[in-house]
Amino acid sequence: MSEGMEDRAVLNVGIDLGTSRSAISADNGRKKWVESYVGWPKDFIARKVVGKPVLFGEEALENRLSLNIYRPLERGVIKDGSARSEEAVKELIRHLIELVRTDESPGEVRAVVGVPAESFKINKLAIRKAVADYAGALMVVSEPFAVAYGVNALNNAMVIDIGAGTVDFCIMHGTVPSEDDQRTLLTGGDYIDQQLQSHLHERYPNADFTLNMVRRFKEQHSFVGAPDRAVEVEIPVAGRPTMHDVTEEMRRACESILPGLVETALELIANFDPEYQKKVRNNIILAGGGSQIRGLRERFEMSLREYGPCRVNCIEDPLFGGADGALALAVDMPDAYWEQS
């Protein structure tokens, strides 16, 4: 490191610990993400196969036959409170920090970790413990709150984070949201995948597809409302790749989350006085991977309109919205707070 004190003494990072994807943003400008899979070799033989003591993300998935794979935040919470799942969270965090750390990075890391709202309620202590080894100082916040902070929606706003395990609703009114300001639904991306899979099984009983394949289809072709064009995907039948039309199934699966979104948004907003309701209604922000479903923003807005004027926007970068927000928190947090954390 140079002698000038130009270099920062700490590396600030924001981490979005998600059910399906985890992302990190650092103030050295690096951003990375991995699928939230952590895999340990099943035994010594498998250890030999994969050549590593622990694997992450895509690589873990590719080697799933040799690994015990954990998606540590299944359904938004540390999976069963088991030591292994906590260990998985720990490994994931370590891995993420390693991804953004460079040779020049200062040794000390300050981390703000955004976790799904449920997990924040239930596992925050465990998560804190898991991260403690790798960050000198850290804070845990709920994911939708991190998103809101990142887009400066501090007041009169509602963030809806459509993740994999959960959909988190969070109303911002100038302070850290309390329990009453938040809701969680289980109808996130995983739910859509299951819906789609069962629709497809119904229509094409002879086709072979895994949940992973179904998720990929969804991520390529998701939409609600009127289709732009027919959605066709390749699914093996008796081992041979065959094109299948899945337009209607895709639409049905994606639309299945709409009623819950509308209902819950209305319910949450209704808790506030009418003046405030109006403001929140005009500042609804969709975040998370599921916000990319084509036509979702429009359909959602249309449905809410029936109850009064409103405006729904999508966050620009659904992949890093949470991590960036957490990073903003880390950077903005006064030193004095860090020192005591």
């Binding site: 925050k124 202590l125 804070m139 007041n155 928190l329 005591q340 954390s341």
Partner: peptide, 18 residues
């Protein structure tokens, strides 16, 4: 100002966690 309050609240929340 809003920010300061929020940051402080986050900090205190986290103190409570530990």
């Amino acid at each position: 100002e809003l920010r300061d309050n929020i940051l402080k609240a986050v900090y205190e929340d986290n103190l409570q966690i530990t």
